[in-house]
Amino acid sequence: MSANITTGTLGLHVRDLDAGYGAATVIREVSFDVAAGEALAVVGRNGMGKSTLLKAIMGHAGRTTGTVRVGDTDVTGRPAHRIVRLGVGYAAQEGNLFTDLTVAENLQAATMHMPRGHTAKRREEVLTYFPVLTNRLWQTAGTLSGGEQKMLVLALALLREPRLLIIDEISDGLQPSVVDTVGDVLRAERERRGISLLMAEQNVDLSLRVADRVAVLKLGRIVSTADSATDGVRDRLMKELAP
């Protein structure tokens, strides 16, 4: 893999994406862009298709039509490892850790495709974000607490120095203080490395804190998009999402 994997930033361009499993269509005609260096949050309640949207981008959803471009590369229908090697980091909502491997092995596994010497420094850097993990290196990942697991998931994605980071409901099941930490880390990474970010979230506050724009997904369609800096955007989103 080339050395420039760690530099620059990548945009994401999705057009007319339909996705689903078997006979079920979960994502319908979704189009959006994440410009290079931009952060977009897709919010929506459970079952609206957020995870499926992200999976479809990574080539994991069963049936997908439409096009997905990462930077200048058309990645529609490509296996996930090819997308990852372009410089995309993906943290799934479930099945995002090798639960039978130790934390250290998970960290090693995350960078298998990268040049070996390079990753040591980055590992230190990422572990400073989550000091608690340094004490857990030899523990099996499946035995970590829920919060620690989520931190590890994020650490793994960041370890690859992605130019585009795609994360699926990192805040799910987290206590507020950890959500704050996650927000801090994501902001710091954006400032430091200027990465592009696509996050699926239920947590409106976290989305507004990290993302430049927030899109609302309802029954598989994007129904509205708002700038995070707009006045009253929080109330409007809460109203749109509230039961």
Binding site: R45, N46, S171, Q175, P176, V179, E201, Q202, N203, V204, D205, L206, M238, L241, A242, P243
Partner: peptide, 16 residues
Amino acid sequence: RESDAVRSAYLGTAVR
């Protein structure tokens, strides 16, 4: 619907 616990479980708007 009015329950705080449910709101926090669903919307992440934790009661602090």
